[in-house]
Amino acid sequence: MEILRKIAVPVMAILAFLAVWEALVQINDWPNYVMASPSDLPAAYAQFWELFLVGSWQTLWRTVAGLGLAVVFGLLLGMVMGFSRIMRDALYPLLVGFNAIPKATLVPVLALLFIGQHDFNTVLMAFLISFFPIAVSVGIGLSTLEPEYRDILRSLGASRFTIFRKIALPKTLPEFFGALKVSVTLAFIGTNLVEIVSPHGRGLGALFLSAQTNSNYPLMFAVLIALAVLGIVLYYAVVALERIFAGWAERQAT
């Protein structure tokens, strides 16, 4: 019953959303080039399903690769900032400044730096846009660890690394996953940004661009929906990981 409700409610919400969308288009009598309606989409998917598969895969792996880099780099940076006050003071303003730069401005910079390296540029952008929340949350999590938690192991002569592995890291996991949920969305945006902006790109973003060039409006909307689905999949993948690795924290949130 519980499971049924958990599936039925979101499915109904999506159906309702599609119905409203369809109705709006019908009532206003919008032509396709203003707004395609849901009923136009199946045809677009049927016609271009191969492009969708290839594009989705490219968008997916580059997002995940960028996010993976962001996790590794963000963790390291967070550790450095969490354990050293001086490093925190030194790095924080730099990071905030970097994070404030609109990432769209980086696309041409990267494109010039690494000409023609489309995969590399895309992964790099996904990484650049998404490591900040991870670094900050891990840094704050580690630096606000109550001293007593450290002392129960330190008083036994445990090394800093052991304390990090057994206490600091697991204790920071809930914050880490909170940040990862933000980062996965950001990485996805970063990937699409590069795909859409760069000429001869790949992935769903490029498919969107070519649909636009060819004035295939239903295809454009079909790509948008595909992007939304992919975004949802990625997000819930992170949620699943969180359940596995930081499920113990759930009870305390209530």
């Binding site: 109550e146 938690y149 002392d151 008083s155 204790k171 924290a249």
Partner: peptide, 19 residues
């Protein structure tokens, strides 16, 4: 002069590891 393994500590806060 440094921590040693023959010491045990308990605090006002039980500081148990939630996970």
């Amino acid at each position: 002069s440094s921590p040693r393994k023959t010491v045990g500590m308990a605090f006002q806060n039980p500081v148990l590891l939630e996970w």
